[in-house]
């Protein structure tokens, strides 16, 4: 089985008339088995709304969702999927073990020993009789992840799972998710603001902005797009771009901020580039080879920076 989660032309509208708001606008995604899919977007982009629709907590206005290629009745497949949305849903008056036991009954997990295994993994084995309402944010997040893991799902949908975790906790969750994917073939859909974490973890990315899917690419495609460039700064950036075009026939570059050019060609002729700029009477203050990362790529997509790269 290839596609385990498919979203086709998903739309969600809130309100009516003058108050009509589009939370999700015609989004289509396809997630394959064993992949870790990162959903990236600013606050209010629609990531959580998409996940809530998948979880069955919100009805879509248009489009459809399919799990394991079942579009007719996706509710039937939800027993194979776990969700952790926003802050974990917990009963504050119960202990960690009791919350897990409740989920064990709801999800029909036969082996009670699994609770101890998951609590141990989540670092909550020694919470004893402490009620969840006295847990820190990080402990609550760990418990929420544990509750999602308990039924050994085939797909996990996690909304900001590392929110509130300390750096060690973030690394633990990252390693755990990678291991689940590699060893058990679990498929994971994860949203996070920590783009550095997602770039280490995910095999695929989708960038959502204002309810729309801006871009969707694999990690290989991201590496290709986030290619190296020469960062150039001078005392007159506009004149510099003119010089580069006229004297070196450069076309693949972009101007970022107000005083820096990213040059995507002639990276093996930087001496020539440098001489051309200085011979034109300009003062060169920066010339260094750098590479875009996921954060820069994401920002370029959502903030609409201009790109003169022939694409």
């Amino acid at each position: 089985m290839g596609h385990v989660l498919q979203v086709e032309n998903l739309t969600k509208l809130y309100g009516r008339g003058k108050t009509l708001k589009t939370a999700v606008d015609n989004v289509s995604l396809t997630i394959d088995k064993g992949h870790i899919y990162g959903l990236i977007g600013p606050n209010g982009a629609g990531k959580t709304t998409i996940m809530k629709i998948m979880a069955g907590l919100t009805a879509q206005t248009g489009g459809k969702i399919g799990f394991f290629e079942n579009f007719e009745n996706p509710d039937e497949e939800r027993s194979r999927i776990s969700f952790m949305l926003e802050a974990p849903y917990l009963d504050g008056s119960m202990t960690a073990w009791q919350n897990m036991q409740y989920i064990r009954y709801v999800r029909g997990v036969a082996d009670e020993r699994r609770i101890s295994q998951v609590l141990d993994f989540a670092g909550l084995a020694d919470t004893g009789k402490k009620q969840v309402k006295h847990f820190s944010l990080g402990m609550r997040q760990r418990l929420g992840i544990g509750m999602a893991l308990l039924p050994e799902p085939e797909i996990m949908v996690l909304d900001e799972p590392v929110n509130g975790l300390d750096p060690e906790g973030i690394v633990d969750v990252r390693n755990m998710l990678k291991k689940l994917c590699a060893e058990q073939g679990m498929t994971i859909l994860i949203s996070s603001h920590l783009l550095s974490e997602l770039s280490e973890l995910c095999t695929d990315f989708a960038i959502i902005n204002e309810g729309r899917l801006v871009d969707s690419l694999s990690s290989e495609e991201l590496k290709e797009k986030c290619r190296s460039y020469a960062a150039i700064r001078t005392n007159d950036i506009n004149f510099t771009s003119t010089i580069l075009e006229q004297k070196l026939n450069v076309t693949k570059y972009k101007v970022v901020e107000h005083d820096e050019i990213h040059l995507y060609e002639r990276l093996d002729e930087l001496e020539k580039v440098s001489k051309t700029i200085t011979d034109s009477g300009l003062i060169l203050t920066k010339l260094v080879v750098e590479g875009e990362n996921l954060e820069e790529y994401y920002l370029s997509k959502v903030s609409g920076n201009q790109r003169k790269d022939g694409e």
Binding site: A55, G56, L57, S79, F83, Y89, L90, Y102, V106
Partner: peptide, 11 residues
């Protein structure tokens, strides 16, 4: 507390 939502999410 939204803990009832697990019953819905479990299908």
């Amino acid at each position: 507390s939204k803990i009832a939502y697990y019953e819905v999410m479990a299908g």
